[in-house]
Nucleic acid binder design. Structure first.
Lengths: 357, 357
DNA sequence: TCGGCACTGGAAAGCGCTTTCCGAACCCGT
DNA sequence: ACGGGTTCGGAAAGCGCTTTCCAGTGCCGA
């Protein structure tokens, strides 16, 4: 990148008017101005009200958020923690959440945690310091309770401080959550594959330490056991939760178990890598090997072949989570208990799966 | 989605300790506590300092952002306006920006504007009200000055109020910007295609009202005029700046001009749609028709065939923009003028282009 | 006609923090 | 041993706003 500076310009640094100035200019008290301009319960005479509003406009008055937050002891900021906005799974969640936030006049602070516990904890603290009204946490927690505990603890802390927490993925008791039906979805994928006659199947799994992966694995295996006919051999290979992770894992899978006729990748991003690996290995999809993904990213339909996958309503989950933030505001204070919303999954059959050869 | 509530739980709603309480508990003054806990210029005795810190930890003190913002007259919040985080182009920008923000201890408020002027203006106002330290605006402004003016005006307003503005895309004088080399990139795409002997080319353009599109069109046409050999016939078809927009436009293109041997789609998302349309029309890529995109989204390499495209360093632009926010903080106040950073583009040749039949 | 009430505007007390200004304590050189 | 300079903790004045409480007005019924 190259930088360049051009001609100077005048710079009158005027900071915007205060409520007091508006009140003075309008000849009313600070209290009245406040009531007129920033939605109060108390009602002000229409005429006066109009006058104040005019003056405010003329003076280009803009309310001071931090001051309001201080006086009201609440903000309109909501935090959203995602592993990585640049991953379509999470950007869809973010988009959904932001849509609802917009309707509710909330501002969303998004942070990438890259699944790093330190970052997660740090962001929660920072959001707490900003007195964010709520925190949404998207992304699978670790299976190991010892690893999950610190995050959970911090969230509980924040929640006790009066903040609202909603997670997409199960962070345990007392924390509201919206959960995709991972087990169920994976089970359907398994039934689909065995139904097509596949008897040697590769599972390209993401980091086993994640609950999401554990659930999808479990669901898939459960589905396999339910299948009629000959017993199924399954090979499980782990890779990073990315395109390259799927690519590498699939290469290893093919090297070690050349006989597989189907591959189940535990996320579409991984499936994309798997597809590349299969192609590279000269396996035709679906003629030689069938491939199933998970998530149903928008791109799936445009892959060649189009990817059979399990649809997750990511955007819907983001919306739902954000809705919960506002709609049961005092849930915990009421001692009511935890709210859990389940989001259904659905197998979408496309061109990447076919009967076993 | 189905909802369910489970067992109740106790709910002691304790809000976190204040600085005053920490000071009292530590037996020091408010001022000292403040100096110890929230980085002040003044230094406090190491021993005392340690003591205060201990007490603060014990009391689980968390600084109150809004109060600090009020007292300091500045915040650590930065706004980021994007057309849609769910579009990989923008999510990459967001990821880049957030990475740098993280380093600088800034919190990023992301908002989707869906290219709706009303939303853009509204968000800027709201960010201004929150006293966001800076606003990043990603996305092409309209070509029509009458349409671009309101946004520009509002940004200038905000800037005058002491906020920092950096745009990705040119919002005109006095507003710092980082600009992708759209013209240059498109020109290269044209040269590549004509170099392969294509003489009847389709341009699948996005909304003509956008500067980005105008620039890419211009660059492409310029490249065509520079080509050696026979004159080139070019057909321009407009579509929405999405996958479906590209799909529809390409279908129309093929219907009206079946003779095209190459298509230049002005964004990869559109190219993906174009690819689908070509496939559907029975045209082999690249044997019958060559295809070039723009942006180099990560998925491009995994399409079939892999997409020849013009790489834009989206993530780098996001980083750069965020860096500018912090690194020349008082640029406008100094009357220095505008800073413009150019981000290079590069033609990436992959499998979707081949010599004309 | 008059007491009482509903209504509405204003004064003032914070909300939690930063920072300026003071003054006490301490160190040094002479 | 003493004056001047340097440190460093504390008191207090805000930052811009909300909201409680109070007081003035006008209206009602009796």
């Amino acid at each position: 990148m190259s930088t360049q500076r051009s001609t100077p310009s005048p710079a009158p640094r005027r900071s915007s008017a205060t409520l007091q100035q508006v009140a003075d200019a309008a000849g009313v008290s600070l209290a009245t101005a406040s009531r007129v301009l920033n939605g109060s319960a108390r009602i002000v005479n229409a005429e006066l009200s109009e006058h104040v509003r005019e003056v405010a406009t003329r003076l280009r008055y803009v309310s001071h958020g931090p001051a309001q937050a201080l006086a009201r002891a609440t903000t309109s900021l909501v935090g959203l923690l995602v592993h990585d906005v640049n991953d379509p799974y999470f950007s869809a969640i973010a988009a959904g959440a932001m849509r609802v936030a917009r309707e509710r006049d909330l501002l969303v602070m998004v942070a990438n945690t890259y699944r790093e516990p330190v970052l997660e904890l740090d962001y929660i603290t920072r959001l707490g310091a900003q007195r964010a009204r709520a925190i949404l946490v998207a992304g699978s927690p670790p299976v190991d309770p010892a690893l999950a505990e610190p995050l959970r603890e911090r969230l509980l802390d924040y929640q006790q401080g009066g903040g609202r927490v909603v997670t997409i993925g199960d962070q345990g008791p007392e924390i509201d959550a919206v959960l995709p039906a991972n087990v169920q979805g994976a089970r359907e994928a398994a039934l689909h594959l065995t139904g097509l006659g596949h008897r040697e199947i590769g599972m390209v799994v993401g980091p086993r330490g994640l609950v999401t992966i554990a659930d999808r694995s479990e669901g898939f295996r459960r589905g396999l056991t339910e299948s009629a006919g000959d017993p199924v051999v399954v090979h499980e290979i782990e890779g990073a939760f990315t395109r390259d992770g799927g690519y590498d894992a699939t290469r290893r899978l093919l090297a070690e178990h050349p006989g597989v006729t189907a591959v189940f990748a535990m996320a579409d991003v991984m499936a994309i890598g798997a597809l590349a690996a299969l192609r590279e290995a000269g396996r035709r999809v679906p003629a030689d090997v069938s491939l199933v993904g998970f998530d149903d990213l928008p791109i799936c339909a445009d892959l060649m072949p189009a990817l059979t996958t399990v649809r997750v309503d990511t955007e819907g989950m983001g919306e739902q989570a954000m809705r919960m933030v506002v709609e049961s505001p005092a849930e915990d204070a009421e001692g009511e208990g935890r709210t859990v919303v389940h989001s259904a999954t659905e197998l979408i059959v496309r061109g990447s799966t076919a009967p076993a050869a």
